[in-house]
């Protein structure tokens, strides 16, 4: 059994071959990790270098001008449109997404829950241009009736006010863009919320039921409170997606730079849609890149905030134990 003896000795001694392999692999993974930082830094640097001259050369104030032409340009209208479409989209997608997640985790029989889970995940896999085309060809013509209804009964809110008293028959509006966006961010919110709700300890749910809670009271007492941070971060990640979404919004929004809260009036624009729609013809790409920089910073901040919420919720739970 001499072979075993050699094998034993070999495995005990630090073999130079395996040590080298380890070092190589460690270096490779380090490079891969470092590459992410370099990449993000390079993108930021590229944006800043290209954007700065454009912002400096702008004869008007880049942040307060609504107009976008080769002589005077500013992001006031597109930034406003970006924020408004994203917020409206979330106002629709968060209740629906949380509802879907609650149904899947708390109410549905297992087979339906699994199926519904797959379907919501598949919604996330649909390319955004498909959502845009669907919105343009299918949704827009059907928005006319909805818009009239909202203007008639909810015009007093201001949001759905129709100042001209006659809505467009082809409503390329902030509201239409928000609807398409809400469908696009729904899977993110539903999927993350689903995981968050699923992680609630069953003994907490039993505790609520044993106190005489109905199913909905049990959800309110034992499921929603510990899931709050998770749902907030799901919302933030959805917001990040909604802010940056380009092609689907470019297809259904009016491409009219305007700061107006009347979301049913044709027009409106977002930073991303503006870049997509004007980049080809633009002689000077600088201003567009500058607006891209603003969007980059905005989404970065939103995503960091989402991480921060998750992190803080985690430490709170640990410190409580």
């Amino acid at each position: 059994m001499a072979s075993i003896t050699t094998a034993d000795t070999a495995s005990l001694r630090s073999s130079s071959r395996s040590a080298r392999g380890d070092a190589v692999f460690r270096t490779l993974t380090f490079i891969a990790g470092a590459f992410v930082f370099v990449l993000l830094g390079a993108i930021a640097l590229f944006l800043v270098i290209k954007a700065m001259p454009a912002i400096k050369n702008d004869p008007t104030n880049f942040f307060t001008t609504t107009q976008w032409s080769s002589s005077a340009y500013g992001i006031a209208a597109t930034l406003f449109g970006t924020a408004l479409t994203a917020v409206l989209a979330l106002a629709i997608a968060v209740p629906v997404g949380v509802g879907v997640a609650l149904y899947i985790t708390q109410y549905a029989p297992r087979r339906i829950a699994t199926l519904l889970g797959y379907v919501t995940d598949m919604l996330a896999a649909v390319p955004s241009v498909v959502y845009g085309l669907w919105g343009l060809i299918f949704l827009l013509p059907r928005m006319v009736g909805i818009d009239h209804f909202l203007a008639k009964y909810f015009g007093w809110t201001g949001l759905f006010h129709d100042p001209a008293g006659g809505l467009n028959t082809f409503p390329k509006t902030i509201f239409s863009a928000s609807i398409v966006l809400s469908i696009m961010v729904l899977p993110i919110i539903a999927a993350i919320s689903r995981e968050v709700f699923r992680q609630v300890d069953p003994v907490q749910k039993e505790a609520a039921l044993a106190l005489g809670a109905t199913r909905w009271e049990m959800i309110r007492t034992a499921v929603l409170p510990p899931s709050r941070a998770g749902v907030i971060s799901a919302t933030m990640l959805g917001l990040g997606r909604a802010l940056g979404e380009t092609i689907a919004v470019a297809l259904v929004i009016g491409n009219v730079n305007r700061v107006s809260g009347h979301v049913l009036v044709p027009g409106g624009n977002t930073i991303a849609a503006n870049i997509a729609n004007t980049f080809g013809e633009a002689a000077d790409k600088g201003p567009l890149i500058a607006s891209g920089l603003v969007l980059f910073v905005l989404t970065l901040v939103v995503n960091l905030a989402a991480r921060y919420v998750i992190l803080r919720a985690g430490t709170e739970e640990r410190s409580a134990v």
């Binding site: 300890d201 003994v203 907490q204 039993e206 505790a207 609520a208 039921l209 044993a210 106190l211 005489g212 809670a213 109905t214 009271e217 007492t221 034992a222 409170p225 510990p226 709050r228 739970e317 409580a320």
Partner: peptide, 28 residues
């Protein structure tokens, strides 16, 4: 739910509601 309100239960593993204070747990 009405039955469980009348017949209370204490479980094997202590299971206070994690996000609630002592007061809120008792008041739940």
């Amino acid at each position: 739910a009405a039955v469980r309100r009348t017949i209370g239960m204490v479980f094997q593993k202590p299971n206070p509601f994690p996000t609630m204070s002592i007061y809120d747990n008792v008041a739940a």
